[in-house]
Design a protein around this nucleic acid. Structure first.
Length: 300
DNA sequence: TTAGGGTTACAG
DNA sequence: CTGTAACCCTAA
């Protein structure tokens, strides 16, 4: 439970976990180069990632592969007490089992799984589409296929992703956020998009009719990694902040759900969005709950 | 570059 | 002083 030197932030841990999930453990350099994580992990080296992953594995597992060395080291470090050296030499290790199971090299805990889960998982397609078009940087706009490929490549997708994308593209065009020109989509000049990633609070989207005051970025990506990071951040918040964040998430979920009911046309896409928001809200509430119920949190 | 042993800084 | 997590060193 120590708190040592350049302690890893929750965001960094989440980024590392997400990186391992994406690229696999051991590909530290690859993870570090991934633009999705390079921002947060820019101050860490590949060795730092490796060491941190080792530490996390040890603590998460209880008994990592390093524990053996620890125990061995421990015994040799026992300070020689002036007294008591009578029959010391060979009695020490009566129950030192070598049974220690090394069977679990991967100690990723449940956190990433609880969100994506076995069920559906969708991010804000609006934002993903915007990001895709922005980053693709095609002068004349990007067609649906290119957008789909970008999103599929950059994030995870659902079985019915293509349908949702079509629905969203249509809706965005109808609402004026996108301009469709000969099968290609461009971002409408109205809203300037900053690539800014880490604004303080998470907002699904700022809609005109939101009951929430939305003055900040109405730009939010819900990637697996970012959800995890958000929850991790929440764990380190104060009680008030966490409560506010959870309430915010719930409110957003409600808004999204209401929208889903209203918008009959793009029912599918809206519902998916709403469910994503709700999933996060539930996770947020769980986090808050465990936070409050036991002030002694499990480390990490 | 990575895996693993070893070392150091910090908290309890 | 002990335990832990970050940091360091080095073989492969």
């Amino acid at each position: 439970m120590g708190a040592p030197k350049q302690k890893w932030t929750s965001e960094e841990e989440s980024a590392l976990k997400a990186g391992v999930v994406k690229h696999g453990a051991g590909k530290w350099r690859t993870i570090l180069k991934d633009p999705e994580f390079s921002g947060i992990l820019s101050l860490r080296s590949n060795v730092d990632l490796k060491d941190k992953w080792r530490n996390m594995s040890v603590t998460a597992n209880g008994w990592g592969s390093r524990e053996k060395a620890r125990l061995a080291l421990k015994r040799s470090q026992q300070i020689p007490r002036p007294d008591d050296n009578h029959m010391a030499l060979s009695t020490v290790d009566g129950s030192l089992d070598e049974e220690i199971v090394d069977a679990k090299p991967l100690a990723i805990s449940n956190e990433t799984l609880q969100i994506t889960g076995p069920k559906r998982s969708i991010s804000r397609l609006d934002n993903l589409i915007m990001e895709a078009i922005t980053n693709l940087k095609e002068p004349s706009g990007s067609n649906k296929t290119a957008i789909a490929i970008y999103i599929e490549d950059q994030y995870w997708t659902l079985p019915n992703f293509k349908r949702l994308l079509s629905a969203k593209l249509k809706a965005l065009t109808a609402s004026g956020k996108l301009i469709k020109v000969k099968r290609k989509y461009r971002i409408a000049p109205v809203s300037a998009f900053s690539e800014g990633r880490s604004s303080g609070m998470l907002l699904l989207e700022g809609r005109p009719r939101d009951s929430l005051r939305v003055e900040k970025e109405d730009f939010r990506l819900l990637t697996k990694f970012q959800i995890d990071a958000e929850l991790a951040k929440m764990r380190t918040m104060t009680a008030q902040e966490a409560a506010a964040a959870a309430a915010q998430a719930v409110a957003e979920a409600e808004v999204a759900m209401a929208e889903a009911e209203e918008a009959a046309r793009e029912a599918e896409a809206a519902e998916a969005d709403a469910e994503a928001a709700q999933a996060f809200a539930e996770a947020a509430m769980m986090t808050l709950k465990s936070r409050n119920s036991s002030k002694l949190m499990v480390p990490g």
